[in-house]
């Protein structure tokens, strides 16, 4: 597997990181994350996972709708769906803290992109 030239551009700031590189980006593209939560924290986590190219993201129905209505073109190659099995799960509950959401997304990006989890 190799990154396409569009992907190499889109994810250039990740590929530049020695700790991530093209291999880490390919792992991100191949993984899946379920984000549970109804508040802004969950929305923020999803935004950063989508932007980072996490291949498949499972969210609740409301967030799925918000996503398709307002910011689905952030990264069209990511699938955001409302059901299915995932390798990782984030529990954000009703929290409206976007800080907490970004932190949760960061944890997944480090685990998969840097530390090599699938």
């Amino acid at each position: 597997m190799k990154l396409s030239s569009d992907q190499a551009t889109r994810y250039a700031r990740h590929v530049l990181l020695d700790e991530v590189g093209a291999r880490g980006q390919l792992r991100l593209l191949g993984t899946s994350v379920e984000v549970r939560g109804e508040g802004a924290a969950a929305e923020e986590a999803v935004r950063y996972l989508v932007a980072a190219g996490v291949g498949e993201i499972v969210v609740g129905a409301d967030l799925r709708q918000l996503y398709s209505e307002t910011w689905a073109d952030l990264n069209p190659e990511v699938r955001v769906k409302s059901g299915g099995e995932c390798r990782h799960r984030l529990e954000l509950g009703p929290s409206d803290s976007r800080l907490q959401g970004a932190q949760a997304a960061l944890k997944v990006l480090v685990a998969v992109g840097v530390k090599g989890e699938a």
Partner: peptide, 21 residues
């Protein structure tokens, strides 16, 4: 700079929201 050294995407979110706080 980020253009030269890269940045893990959600780091910008974390730092930005700490700035808001």
């Amino acid at each position: 700079t980020c253009a030269g050294a890269g940045v893990l995407g959600a780091m910008a979110g974390l730092v930005g929201h700490l700035q808001v706080q």
